[in-house]
Simulated scan of single mutants.
Amino acid sequence: MKNIAAKLTVAAISTAFATEAMATEWNVSLWGKRRAFTEHVHKLAELVEEKTDGEFTMNISYGGLSKNTENLDGISIGAFEMAQFCAGYHADKNRAITVLELPFLGVRNLDEEVAVSHAVYDHPAVAEEMAQWNAKMLMTSPMPQYNLVGTGEPRDELGDFDGMRVRATGGLGEAFRAVGGVPTSVTSSEAYQAMESGVVDTVAFAQHAHLSFGTINQAAWWTENLNPGTVNCPVVVNIDAYESLTDEEREALDSSVPEAIDYYLENYGELLQRWDEVLEEKGVEKVTISDEELAAFREATASISDTWVEEMTAQGIPGQELLDLVNSTLEQTRASN
């Protein structure tokens, strides 16, 4: 009986170890703190865990695994399995998706932002470039058009942007440079300090980031309708880790993306509905840019897209094809609605 009991105990322990070994655990590298910008990642983790009965889980870290500007590098070496990054942090490493950061693309809302982002992510040129970093695009982190918060007197005319020191990355930075601004690409986590110390006069963010990183607390005014463009921030997975998943785990992950995005959109929509209350509560003046000034801004930045296409084409990236894809996707999305 003792031998039988001993064998049963060994078998039970072996089974327990085998079960534990079969479980999949991914590390996810984000930054800042939990906010509207990261809610889809949390929802994705929740859905995947539910669909796999707890056999596939994700540990979400805010800055504990990597700096935000080094998340793509971490993915490339397999330091973690999933990460979020923004294209403007290292435009030379993700050239193809910077089409989504060009100014005045005409994207009107978050649904359109999701549509154009995922269309571009599915383009072979994007997949090929990301594969160089052992990264696979999973989903976007859709953000509304960026607007400025600033100190001092409101800047509501194009001439006011001349010499303006602005925290803006990627195509947005180029847009402000075109009208005399002086863009700086400090990270989102450094924006508050840059504003507080006077390194920058203004900060270009989406609403959630002005809240999360505290720049709204330094602001005297906010431009409600400048809408020059936005930043594109994908969530990517390490290709080796993705391919190591079982068929069931991979299906759980892929099938959860649409629901995670829907949850993100609903949550962000609630934030946008509260935005006017936030401005009033913090005593921030809402600044409206005239149609004439907006038209002048668009005209001043019109050549940026042409220059981008030329530069990408010279580097072997199908720039015009990607820009055309954005425009055709917008048309299709609007037609279907």
Results as ranks from 00 to 15, higher is better:
Glu281Met: 11
Glu292His: 08
Ala241Phe: 02
Ser303Leu: 05
Asn327Gln: 14
Asp276Asn: 15
Gln273Phe: 05
Trp222His: 14
Tyr263Ile: 09
Leu325Asn: 00
Glu321Thr: 11
Ala220Trp: 07
Arg274Pro: 02
Gln218Thr: 05
Glu251Val: 11
Ser290Met: 11
Ala220His: 13
Asp306Arg: 00
His210Thr: 03
Ser255Glu: 12
Pro234Thr: 07
Tyr242Phe: 15
Asp247Gln: 10
Ser305Arg: 14
Thr223Phe: 08
Asp254Met: 07
Glu266Val: 10
Gly229Ile: 00
Leu211Phe: 08
Ala300Leu: 00
Ala296Asn: 04
Leu294Asn: 06
Gly269Leu: 09
Val237Asp: 00
Arg250His: 11
Tyr263Asn: 13
Asp254Leu: 10
Pro234Phe: 02
Asn238Gln: 12
Ala220Lys: 13
Glu243Leu: 08
Leu265Arg: 06
His208Ile: 06
Glu311Thr: 10
Ala314Cys: 01
Ala260His: 02
Glu281Asp: 15
Ser328Glu: 15
Gln320Pro: 04
Glu249Tyr: 02
Gly269Lys: 11
Glu285His: 10
Ser290Thr: 15
Ala300Ser: 08
Tyr268Trp: 13
His210Ala: 02
Leu245Trp: 06
Thr307Gly: 07
Tyr264Glu: 12
Gln273Ala: 13
Asp324Gln: 06
Ala252Cys: 07
Glu311Asp: 15
Ser305Val: 14
Val278Glu: 13
Asp262Glu: 15
Asp254Pro: 01
Ile304Asp: 00
Asp262Ser: 12
Trp222Arg: 08
Pro228Ala: 10
Ile317Asp: 03
Glu321Cys: 07
Ser256Asn: 11
Glu259Trp: 03
Glu249Cys: 02
Val235Thr: 11
Ala260Pro: 01
Thr288Lys: 13
Val278Ile: 14
Glu293Pro: 01
Tyr263Thr: 09
Gln320His: 08
Glu321Asp: 13
Ser244Asn: 15
Val309Glu: 06
Trp275Asp: 13
Leu272Tyr: 15
Leu322Ala: 01
Val231Glu: 10
Ser244Asp: 14
Ile216Arg: 09
